[in-house]
Design a protein around this nucleic acid. Structure first.
Lengths: 141, 141
DNA sequence: TCCTCTGTGTCAGTTTCCTTACATCGCAGC
DNA sequence: GCTGCGATGTAAGGAAACTGACACAGAGGA
């Protein structure tokens, strides 16, 4: 890391990589991966969402999301009807057990985020979030 | 994405995911992945570095880095002696062809980063980099 | 009505990366 | 001298993700 100019992309990757690692460590006792947590989290925000829409919100492909959902259904954390009411989309939702696991997981994740932001003021945190949101907006046409 | 509070971790993941995607698209004409670009980039900054140290700087495992290096050596972009001069570490370095490819790749990557930061002032960009660096520092013990 | 386009679910194959494990080398301490 | 420790390189196996491909359902226009 010597003679390497502090490029934004590299620091961004570094922060994301480290956050992912810490979250993985924190969620390990619950036998939950970061992707699975993200899946449950979005599912609570939008009950009855389709797997494809869930995949877009979690930054994975439909195929990966369906494989992940099968695991979560086997564990009883997620439920999905066998037949669609209309169209092809199968509305997915959290079970009571899934909501419990998510609540416990979120406490752990919030702890990690607080640790990540420990060196920043509230104003700096707001500026960081705003800056990242601007990057997202600029990168999607 | 409705009813989802703007958590920092999520926006961070979103920005990193999008940046990775745009870089992958930009580097495709050069038949280079983001990881390979990152590898060449660090190699130029620290010639003669070991594969293990390179792996730490690129956020992958030693095994993945050695596999990647084999590909890059086959393409003539990287060179590594067959025998270590001392110890077990094999000093890795860029070839002339590798330096050329890296230079072309970096132009493309800089373009993507500029696009990402288009909506931010210079001061905001500095604040963003500083905020991310603080997150990194807080997350590594 | 027919056609096209988009969105969704799914299967198969491949790639990439990680985890686990082992052997080797230099170094510091007894 | 010898031993434990850390760092490096390597191999084998598995987990997770992606790409490519196909079929189906609804919306909209010709």
């Amino acid at each position: 890391m010597v003679n390497v100019p502090p490029q934004v992309g590299y620091v961004l990757k570094h922060a994301q990589s480290l956050l992912h690692l810490r979250m993985e460590e924190a969620l390990r006792p619950l036998h939950l991966t970061v992707s699975q947590y993200s899946c449950l989290y979005h599912l609570r925000g939008e009950p009855g969402i389709s797997a494809a829409a869930l995949a877009r919100g979690t930054f994975v492909t439909r195929q990966s999301m369906n494989a992940m959902l099968r695991q979560l259904i086997d564990r009883g954390l997620v439920a999905r009807p066998a037949q669609p009411e209309r169209g092809r989309a199968l509305p997915t939702m959290l079970t009571a057990a899934g909501a419990d696991v998510l609540e416990a997981a979120q406490r752990l994740v919030v702890g990690v985020e607080q640790r990540m932001l420990a060196g920043l003021t509230a104003a700096e945190t707001t500026a960081l979030t705003g800056g990242l949101a601007s990057c997202v907006k600029s990168l999607e046409e």
